[in-house]
């Protein structure tokens, strides 16, 4: 359950974070305009926002959002996707992704852009074939940090009342039942999955990194 929530929140963060980062990296005005907002919002811990997000989103879940009201009182996947939780996952993941992407776009070598221009590429073509590939290692780095954050946030969020599924819930529940064996096992699983996420994204990003770092 935690995995599905993270997948949802993280994809949302990536889906919004990468384009925003690309825009902010590429356009001076967008950067000026958005960076203040990002810098103000970024230090706000996602956990701190959990009560607020519960107020805003109530206990709404994805089944309601999709208008599937009749699913409300059944136990199913959509019903476990509390909007508030997805929101704070998004919040936790999106900033490292934005910052990583900006960093990537800004670190494109000027010579490569000039070469592309002389070779007849217009701005869009350069963006697609020069800026994005050279930003890729940093984007992956941002994604890696982002998913780590998401994973931390979800465990904490699931420990709070109002949840009855997920690994965070399992840790808290086993603690209440004094089943420390289950609790410890869950913690190990959390660590293991966290590392798996990190390594997975790292190996995805590795190829682009190798190519960039070996350039002369």
């Amino acid at each position: 359950m935690s995995l599905v929530r993270v997948a949802l929140g993280f994809s949302l963060a990536a889906l919004i974070g990468i384009p925003v980062g690309l825009l902010m990296g590429a356009s001076y005005h967008a950067r000026k305009f958005l960076s203040l907002m990002v810098e103000m919002a970024r230090p706000l811990s996602a956990i701190a926002l959990l009560p607020l997000s519960i107020i805003i989103f109530k206990a709404r879940t994805f089944s309601q959002l999709l208008g599937l009201e009749y699913l409300r009182y059944q136990k199913n996947l959509l019903n476990e996707m509390q909007l508030g939780m997805i929101f704070i996952l998004f919040w936790g993941g999106v900033f490292p992704i934005i910052l990583g992407t900006i960093q990537g776009v800004r670190s494109v070598r000027k010579m490569h852009l000039e070469a592309a221009g002389i070779l007849g590429a217009n701005r869009l073509f350069s963006f697609r074939h020069v800026i994005i590939p050279s930003a890729l290692p940093d984007i992956f780095h941002g994604l890696k940090l982002g998913i780590g954050r998401c994973w931390m946030v979800i465990i904490a969020a699931e420990m709070l009342p109002g949840t009855n599924s997920g690994i965070g819930y399992l840790i808290r529940y086993s603690y209440q039942l004094s089943r420390y064996d289950i609790m410890l096992a869950s913690i190990v699983i959390v660590a293991f999955i966290g590392a798996l996420f990190s390594k997975g994204l790292e190996s995805l990003g590795e190829k682009s990194l190798v190519l960039r770092s070996k350039e002369r």
């Binding site: 010579m111 590429a121 217009n122 074939h129 590939p133 960039r212 350039e215 002369r216």
Partner: peptide, 23 residues
Amino acid sequence: FQQGALFPWMSIFANLEFPLKAK
């Protein structure tokens, strides 16, 4: 250029193809 203007993330073939693709 003096050096290093090839795109490191592209194969040599793709590098040569770049200007033609742009056109």
